[in-house]
Amino acid sequence: MMQYQDSSEPKTPETFHIALLSAYAVGVHGIESLIPMPIPWLKIGLANIITLTTLLLYGLKAGMTVTLIRVFIGSLFGGTFLGPAFVLSIGGGVASTLVMWASRNLFGRLLSPVGVSLLGAMTHNISQLFLAYLFFVRRIEAIMLISPVIIMLGAITGAFNGIITTLIINRIKEHRENQK
């Protein structure tokens, strides 16, 4: 990683880490769309593992950068750029990143990454439902009918992502301590 460092432009290792994490997020996002799901619009939101890891290790600016890069590049690869799915994706991504950062600062050690991930998943789903209602569906009964299912799936996938994030962060912290 460090061998790419250009002497003309001084860069901190952190910038490289964020670039690498963005690439991971795009990759995970792409691979996730290949996993067959029982319901077509259901997603585990695996890319949120990367967003959350970045957010917890490097802060809001880095987390938001990774989210935006993931949404833009991911939608360009997926062919949904500037389409309805793109609007939902960017709205949900930005809102959930903000809420995860806020909940981390508000609750501190009271919430583990699992709790932060749960709140992030909820925000992602609710903001997407809101955007879908605002721009595409315009039928409140359809939104109300689907929301219990979405809340439940969000709780399960959010918890799963949070557990994976905890494992990743624990490993990274261990590695950092070993290097000292």
Binding site: S147, I151, I163
Partner: peptide
């Protein structure tokens, strides 16, 4: 062990909300 008390409360709250909303939605529709 990796989750806090608040995590568990949050998770159970969401599941409870889901179960409750199944009844609520039926009435709403």
């Amino acid at each position: 062990n990796m989750t806090t008390f608040l995590d568990k409360v949050l998770f159970l709250l969401l599941i409870a909300l889901t179960i409750a909303s199944f009844f609520f939605v039926k009435r709403f529709i």
